[in-house]
Simulated scan of single mutants.
Amino acid sequence: MKLNNAHCAITVMHFFGTMCWTALLVFTVAVSLTLSQAESDSSSRFVKDIDGYMSVCQRLGWEPKKGCFQQERLIAFHAALKHILRNLPVKTTLKFDDVLLNKGNAYDPTTGVFTAPEDGVYSFEWTFLSIQKSSVYLEIVVDGVRKAITCINQQGSLYISSSGHLLYELKEGNKVWIRTSHVTAGYLHGNKYTFFSGQKLKSF
């Protein structure tokens, strides 16, 4: 009789234990589904909020061509002279034929001309190296109009370099290049001593 009672007690405990584990499993699944639904709702609200912000930005005229959150295109180049150039006539365009960087493919080494692929503010730098008793005037032009000039005139050092910098707002299609000016350019050193570079500044 005592054995039967013990057996009944064990059976009852097993039954309630199974019920507890089942209830716990159902509770866990329910919580998971609830959290998943909440996360889904949160994601949906986030997407709707972003769409709303983009719409407001576009209505205000901020970055209307690209949208508010689209990554900007990288436009940058750096090119140097491969070889020495001598006795260049006035208004000779320099063709920097050793291209080290040309993101956006806006610089053409066959012509020496940079063509702005889009509107924006651009930064340009150039440096040249010359020798003793040589005179060199270099100017940077936008669509044929001079914007800045650098020079070395009958200098006394064995070698000397000069550099220039231009910040300028360009429209799509504007062309920029470096050319000789004033007098015949006596000597320009190659092998990366004379170079031209530029980039579009980021919009904020």
Rank of each mutant, 00 (worst) to 15 (best):
L188P: 03
V47N: 11
T11L: 14
E39M: 06
N5Q: 14
T194W: 13
L129N: 08
C20R: 11
N102G: 10
T93F: 05
A76H: 10
L167N: 10
T28A: 15
L81G: 01
I75G: 08
M54Y: 13
V176S: 05
D97R: 01
H83W: 10
E139K: 03
V141K: 06
E139S: 06
G52R: 11
S197I: 00
N105W: 07
I10M: 08
N4Y: 14
P109N: 05
G104S: 04
N153R: 01
T127V: 07
E118A: 06
A6E: 13
T28I: 14
C68V: 03
K91S: 07
K202Y: 12
P64L: 09
P64S: 07
F46T: 09
Q155G: 08
V90H: 04
F196M: 00
P64A: 08
A148D: 15
F114G: 04
H83T: 06
S43H: 10
G173H: 09
H189Q: 12
E118H: 03
H189G: 02
A79N: 01
E63C: 13
Q154V: 06
H165P: 01
M54T: 09
F124V: 02
K91P: 00
L158Y: 13
I140G: 09
Y107G: 04
T150A: 05
H78D: 11
K171A: 10
F124A: 03
H83P: 01
A30G: 02
S32K: 02
R45W: 05
I160L: 11
I149F: 08
N4C: 05
I160D: 06
T110C: 10
M19A: 14
C151S: 15
V29A: 15
S181V: 09
G186C: 02
K192S: 15
G164F: 07
T110Y: 14
S36L: 08
Q154N: 15
E72M: 03
L158V: 08
F195G: 00
F128L: 12
R59C: 09
V31E: 12
T111H: 00
A79W: 02
K192V: 10
N105R: 13
Y122A: 01
S44H: 12
V183P: 00
